[in-house]
Design a protein around this nucleic acid. Structure first.
Length: 565
RNA sequence: AGGGGUAUAGCCAAGCGGUAAGGCAACGGGUUUUGAUCCCGUCAUGCGCAGGUUCAAAUCCUGCUACCCCUACCA
């Protein structure tokens, strides 16, 4: 199959539409999309889907994708959000066409088009208060009533609108509305507001304006100005499409973009509502927008997710018009797939148990060369030092082995009197267990078998393989064990109880006594590893020269843990 | 005088009148110095329900049902 063929296979209904358009020479076969975030919060995994769709579609059809900040509501927006959004898109690996666009840079044009509408008798200044307007609007079963201001003359409307612009009225005193149909079954067509008064300075335009266009009046026309051909948005805007088209029809716009809708992403065990994510930050349930438990792009990044894994995830879930809830397991599968092949291996003992190898002298070191990756020699080797004093994982030792009724129950770690392989090194046997006054195991006295370096032992079989570090040749680290943020699959689905009541108290468990093999020392933030048998981890920005801090991205698949349940 | 959408396995999702792809999960088995990876196998006589058209229906028609969105001077 040629590159072109594989590239041209439609993968979803939007691509199908685009291919038909290209075939019919619609827009002269050009494809221009846009990603239009409002800078009122950080981007989350749902936005990643939209980003992959818009940028990915442009890429696939040799088109371009613009980045446009849909900044028509200065009360909720800020430069901080703009910066974070730019950073997230860059990190995901996408490049927008030309300069970054702002809806606010079209405010002059939009104003002129509003005047155009007034001149054609298609818009009027309405003095109804928001409460009155609500009454006049009617409801789902009752048609609305015409505003008493609906038939003002063009001249009066022109004058009033100009005075709105010139700050002669207070907020809420009046607004500009499109004159469409107060009895339309689609509520969006009941003379929708298109400009409101907001005496608020804007993060881009400063104090130039005190009237701002409503989304519906700004979006389609901005698309037209930019020559967007396929304006892709989520399903809740479907009812707005007739209005989108109405403005395009009634205005002398330079192009006629078309809107297409797809269903937004829902992920279980988390939430994807900007407002609610902001609440988690504001209430300090999480540390920040980029807390590794947040489903934000910056949170996932700090957690250890890669751009590739997020793009792979978006490919996996597809693009449709049906509402579904994607299993978190799919996201985890995507990052495991990427990291399995790309992450170097290392050993980290998270909850240490002291092991003394009684047949090695104090002060003696033996260094082993271990592959950085079991299947990829190009990743090189690392050196791991063995000494008399070792540390192993507490859960890798049991005093008395359970009796196994089948192979799934077999104990494959260390037990009293038994042997186990130290990963990459010798087989050791546990001869004696030392306990404290409370009866807790605090140290194991073991002997190693010198004949088992790269060879199987003679006459006995180790239970399995465990990871380890030397007490003196390893480096200290703090391990942050992250888990899902909520205990309920649908934390937002209870009518009586808030999502805040379903927070997982164990979403973060901090371990401060952990030790990592020395090869990891000095690793830069965002370096990812597989700590063998423990999971995938990522160096956190909180790391210092004295102490590493690592975040658990995701566990390994664990058939043992599963069998224990 | 309500309107607009969506229903295919536990989850996501192909399918476009010719006899139900793929992925995730799950479950068996093999390899393994990671209980990982990898490999092999199993997993919808069935497509929300009921009728109808047709030689043939998940696909077309009719009627139901369930769920989602819409009555912001938010996007």
């Amino acid at each position: 199959m040629s590159k072109n063929e594989s590239n041209q296979k439609p993968t979803n209904f939007i691509h199908q539409i685009i291919e038909d358009d290209i075939k019919n020479n619609v827009n002269e076969g050009k494809v221009v999309t846009r990603f239009p975030p409002e800078p009122n919060g950080y981007l989350h995994i749902g936005h990643a889907k939209a980003i992959c769709l818009n940028f990915g579609t442009a890429e696939k059809y040799q088109g371009v994708c613009n980045l446009r900040f849909d900044d028509t509501n200065p009360e909720k927006e800020s430069q901080e959000y703009i910066d974070s959004i730019i950073s997230d898109i860059n990190w995901l690996g996408y490049q927008w066409a030309g300069d970054i666009r702002y809806t606010s840079s079209y405010f002059d044009q939009l104003y002129d088009w509003a005047v155009h509408l007034i001149k054609n008798g298609n818009a009027y200044v309405c003095d109804l208060s928001s409460e009155q307007a609500r009454e006049y609007r009617g409801n789902f079963t009752q048609p609305g009533k015409d505003s008493p201001y609906r038939n003002r003359s063009v001249a009066e409307n022109l004058s009033l609108f100009e005075r709105m612009k010139n700050a002669e009225f207070k907020e809420g005193a009046c607004s500009l509305r499109a004159k469409i149909d107060m009895s339309a079954p689609n509520m969006n067509l009941r003379d929708p507001m298109i400009y409101r008064i907001l005496h608020t300075s804007h993060h881009q335009t400063g104090n130039k304006w005190c009237i701002y266009p409503i989304y519906d009046f700004a979006h389609g026309q901005s698309d037209a100005v930019e020559g967007v051909t396929h304006s892709i948005c989520t399903l809740e805007f479907e009812d707005h499409r007739p209005l989108y088209d109405w403005f395009i029809e009634h205005l002398p716009v330079p192009a006629k973009p078309k809107q297409y809708e797809f269903s937004r992403l829902e992920l279980n065990y988390t939430i994807t509502s900007k407002r609610k994510l902001k609440q988690l930050v504001d209430d300090q349930v999480v540390a920040a927008w980029n807390d590794p438990r947040m489903p934000t792009i910056s949170g996932l990044r700090r957690r250890g997710y890669t751009p590739k894994s997020l793009r792979q995830f978006c490919d996996m879930i597809g693009v449709t018009r049906s509402n579904g809830v994607v299993d978190m397991g799919m996201l985890e599968s995507a990052i495991r797939e990427d990291l399995d092949s790309s992450a170097p291996r290392a050993m980290c003992v998270t909850r240490p148990l002291k092991v003394t190898l009684t047949n090695i002298e104090e002060g003696v070191e033996e260094w082993f060369e271990l592959p950085a990756h079991p299947k990829d020699d190009t990743m090189g080797v690392r050196r791991v030092g063995l000494t008399r004093n070792l540390l192993i994982e507490q859960e890798d030792f049991i005093e008395v082995k359970p009796i196994a009724k089948n192979k799934h129950e077999k104990w494959k770690r260390l037990a009293t009197g038994d042997a186990v392989r130290l990963r990459g090194a010798y087989v050791i046997t546990c001869n004696e267990v030392i306990k404290n006054d409370a009866g807790e195991v605090i140290e194991l006295l073991c002997t190693y078998d010198p004949a088992t370096k790269g060879a199987n032992p003679e006459g006995y079989k180790p239970n399995g393989v465990i990871h380890w570090v030397s007490e003196e040749l390893s480096v200290p680290c703090e391990v942050r064990m992250y888990d899902r943020l909520f205990t309920e699959a649908n934390p937002d689905g209870d009518k009586e109880r808030s999502f805040m009541e379903f927070l997982n108290p164990e979403s973060l468990v901090v371990l401060t006594d952990s030790r990592i093999e020395s090869s990891v020392k000095g690793a830069a933030a965002e370096t990812r590893y597989q700590f063998e048998r423990m999971g995938y981890f990522c160096i956190d920005v909180d790391s210092s020269a004295e102490k590493l801090v690592v975040n658990r991205t995701v566990t390994l698949r664990d058939s043992w843990a599963k069998a224990q349940k």
